[in-house]
Design a protein around this nucleic acid. Structure first.
Lengths: 169, 169
DNA sequence: CCAGGGTAGTTGGATGTCCGAGATTTCGTC
DNA sequence: GACGAAATCTCGGACATCCAACTACCCTGG
């Protein structure tokens, strides 16, 4: 997880002080964005660690969950990119690896020959169930927050996503 | 920025409904972590876009800001990794590129020959000032939130970071 | 009907991140 | 003083992500 040595102080709060002392503007914005970056860094490391026994990364796990939730366990790759907010080439890469692991297979679209459907396999179903147990058991490493606080966090980030055009709201 | 097509609905809220309907556990945790991942994805795309004219990425920009804030504009590479929560190899990579751009130079540590100091150049100082104007002018793309909401967000993520051992608190 | 524009996915190249392993240097202990 | 452990940085490999360009296919207008 990057550095093994935790700092004795809050690097973000420190950066904010320096930022403000130079009148660089928008310190609250800077602190919030940096906090989000750090939190993502921390969480992805923890989740990836929990997923390592299954030879999965968070990106591939997320794709599996999405397929697992879909009807017939299949979805056009483009739709997956929309849902996961990934570039088409990233989807290609992820499906390549999941297919090598026999967790997903590519099948042709019945009517549109441009489209490729990714379909979760029986192995995929089993792995995603087990992996989800592992992921939820670490509680996402956010037990420092209550469920109420997590909901407030999610709500604040929802507003951010709406403002950024992630979805209409 | 990944998909160009915004979804007509909230993919995270939808995932949470499916998650809950299958009794997978910890839905608030799942929603919060996924929200953080999405927010990071959105923000890094916006910031990188703003930094493109300076041929910088957020990672390199953050390193430059850190050096800019440091005394004598220099820091051992290991310390930079601690502050930025980056693996030593990532720091090497970033300094490699900044050095190619003449924004940073490597100098030997005066007493410890193991240590390499990264020092910001005059070009580096100028670029980081200009780049900061560009970054703050986009307001980090989070104008959907008030300053008060941004502070609440930062505070919630601070608790998360403390719980994860990012710093003692 | 067919020509052109739009859509879907892949390929190749660049960047950034991590891990494992190695070289060099420093420090602690006997 | 010397040996072994620890610290610092770099190198090679793996993975994920993006962009630009390409192929294959669909569909609409004239």
């Amino acid at each position: 997880m990057g550095s093994q040595r935790p700092l004795p102080f809050d690097a973000i709060a420190e950066a904010r002080r320096q930022w403000e002392s130079r009148d660089w503007g928008a310190p609250a914005h800077m602190a919030a964005i940096t906090s989000i970056m750090r939190a993502q860094q921390i969480l992805i490391a923890e989740v990836d660690e929990a997923l390592k026994p299954f030879d999965l990364t968070f990106a591939r796990y997320e794709a599996l969950v999405l397929l697992n939730f879909s009807r017939h366990g299949e979805l056009p790759m483009g739709k997956m990119g929309d849902r996961l907010m990934l570039h088409p080439t990233s989807v290609t890469n992820i499906i390549d690896r999941l297919e090598q692991q026999d967790l997903v297979r590519r099948i042709p679209h019945p009517t549109d020959r441009r489209t490729v459907l990714a379909q979760i396999t029986e192995d995929g179903h089993q792995v995603v169930e087990k992996a989800t147990e592992a992921v939820t058991s670490i509680r996402f490493g956010v037990d420092g927050l209550t469920v109420d606080e997590l909901d407030r966090l999610t709500e604040l980030l929802r507003k951010l996503r709406i403002a950024a055009g992630d979805f209409p709201g």
